[in-house]
Design a protein around this nucleic acid. Structure first.
Lengths: 252, 252
DNA sequence: TTTGGATAATATGACCGACATAAAATGTGC
DNA sequence: GCACATTTTATGTCGGTCATATTATCCAAA
């Protein structure tokens, strides 16, 4: 049940709050949401704002509305899990091992192939951009915050270099994965930095225009990432993160 | 410039119309949209409806708004091209060869791997569901409309069987690809049906719980799909489709 | 009792006008 | 020419009204 704290915020936040109730399972698949007028009073905003919030969630496939019948939660199958915000909301609310496993699995499928395409067809300008990101990662030292930002640009650079808009869109998923890694790095400081030589290897293979080598190099990085994540998750059983997140939520 | 025909329709249609102006490049990346009040008069709807439409496009990453500064088109890099509706809009408005090429490329990356995972970890119930879809494809005969619907369920079934929510979400992309194939099948009737034995081969490998074989079988289907699409596109240079779409648009 | 059709109730969909807010544009004093 | 106050303006939020579709109800005829 949503706490009716003061929500004098933009409807984006309202959408986020409602999304969290759905993602967390408080409002299950197939169930009907409270009426718009009730949501408005619960979240202390006008019905107009609620409607804009709901239209955001509709756009992401979370809910559907029919006149008179009401608004209901769609089945997970229709949720656009590859959406940037939905990814963020899901991990922020439920940093589960299952989520981490699936995210790593899909990265392992996409990124090595993207890397091979990048090596084959990426322009020199694309590669120079990736190289630049690598150098900033190197310069970041042990500060995992400063490290993760160029890290994302490194991976996005590869996706962009493929020239495939769908692979570019996959950058949102990679971003979620790196945010996840960053959150977990508090449990294992310095772990991110260990990925640097793996990135160097990828870069070398790309510069060498060697698709197979690039694919393998990216695959090795994915292996490392998976090991880091599973070890971090097993260290603290995930519950610690959930409470940390809850307290972070509290001060909003 | 948007024709101010009567748009007394749901704001979903307004969102679609605006999205098409963006996707088509009429409103380019970085450019500022007309003010909400002007959009309202152009599309003959209230500002409220325009705002709901814009919030849909915001949710899909197409636009962003800042108070006073206005609403602007975000760079393509931020568009969520893996979104079901955006995929539909893009192909409906610009059925380009480039779109087809990229879509096929990303399918080739994801689906064979998903197929391997399905063979390894899919439940018998999952496989039975895929088998059922196959039989309906078989029963559809030469009717490509009746064929394409279970075809989609076949591919979605494989993605679902992986148990990976992100791969399930990729079903939207597969759906767009199959709709594309269906549209192109008017240029080459009977072509879809040729894929049936390839689907049979995939099914056999999955039942045999043979991941490598399943991966290869799906890869062969992707090869066939790519050949079909490129031949259909080279037959009529794509312009024919654009006009067909324009006329289909006209009677709305 | 059941069934079929008219009727009422109701939740989403659309619209309007007004005000709040933030940031860009402008003006003013130095 | 520059820093600061003021105005302007486009989005953000609000409350209310009416429209529309669909469910739910009720009544009458078979």
């Amino acid at each position: 049940m949503p706490r009716d704290v003061e929500f004098r915020q933009s409807n984006t936040h309202v959408a986020r709050e409602i999304a969290k109730l759905i993602v967390s399972g408080t409002w299950q698949e197939g169930s009907t949401l409270p009426r718009e007028i009730e949501l408005a009073s619960q979240f202390c905003v006008s019905r107009t704002s609620i409607r804009e919030s709901l239209s955001i969630l509709k756009a992401k496939g979370l809910i559907a509305a029919r006149q008179k019948a009401g608004t209901h939660v769609r089945e997970r199958m229709n949720w656009n899990m590859l959406d940037a915000e939905l990814l963020e909301w899901t991990w922020a609310l439920r940093p589960t091992e299952e989520f981490a496993r699936q995210l790593t699995q899909v990265r392992r499928i996409v990124e090595p192939e993207a890397c091979a395409i990048c090596a084959e067809r990426g322009s020199d300008a694309d590669l120079a951009r990736i190289e630049r990101a690598y150098r900033e990662m190197d310069a970041a030292g042990m500060d995992s915050r400063a490290y993760s930002e160029p890290d994302l640009r490194f991976h996005r650079g590869i996706l962009t270099a493929t020239g495939n808009d769908f692979l570019v869109a996959f950058g949102a998923t990679v971003e979620a994965a790196l945010r996840m890694s960053f959150d977990l790095s508090t449990l294992n400081p310095g772990a991110p930095r260990k990925s640097l030589p793996y990135h160097r290897a990828i870069l070398d293979e790309i510069w060498a225009r060697n698709p197979d080598g690039a694919r393998r190099a990216m695959h090795r990085l994915m292996d490392l990432t998976e090991r880091n994540i599973t070890s971090a998750l097993s260290r603290r059983h995930g519950e610690a993160l959930a409470t940390a997140d809850a307290s972070r939520e509290h001060d909003a």
